[in-house]
């Protein structure tokens, strides 16, 4: 099972001024929406995708189709090179 980690080019943190999680990189910033922030927060090079999904399902039991959203976002994040998959 694939295990994502943050691309070391990016730094992930919560920004009070944006009231959002952000990805910081050389001279730039990506502001993440609420669900993107929750997902990236789980990405640590340890949890595999299934674990991320099950933990987020437990945290947000009322959200329908959360697994599809997570897969879609991770694909997007991978394409943007925000995350990499651990070998």
């Amino acid at each position: 099972m694939a295990t994502p980690k943050l691309n070391p080019l990016y730094k992930f943190q919560f920004e009070k001024a944006q009231d959002a999680f952000v990805l910081l990189y050389p001279e730039g910033m990506i502001t993440l929406n609420g669900s993107a922030g929750e997902i990236i927060q789980m990405v640590n090079g340890q949890r595999d995708v299934d674990t991320i999904i099950s933990e987020l399902v437990a945290k947000f039991p009322d959200v329908e189709g959360i697994d599809k959203d997570i897969h879609e976002f991770l694909d997007h994040a991978h394409e943007k090179k925000w995350i990499k998959y651990v070998e």
Partner: peptide
């Protein structure tokens, strides 16, 4: 404090 986050 004002919210600046990038510093050169």
């Amino acid at each position: 404090e004002m919210g600046a986050v990038q510093l050169g």
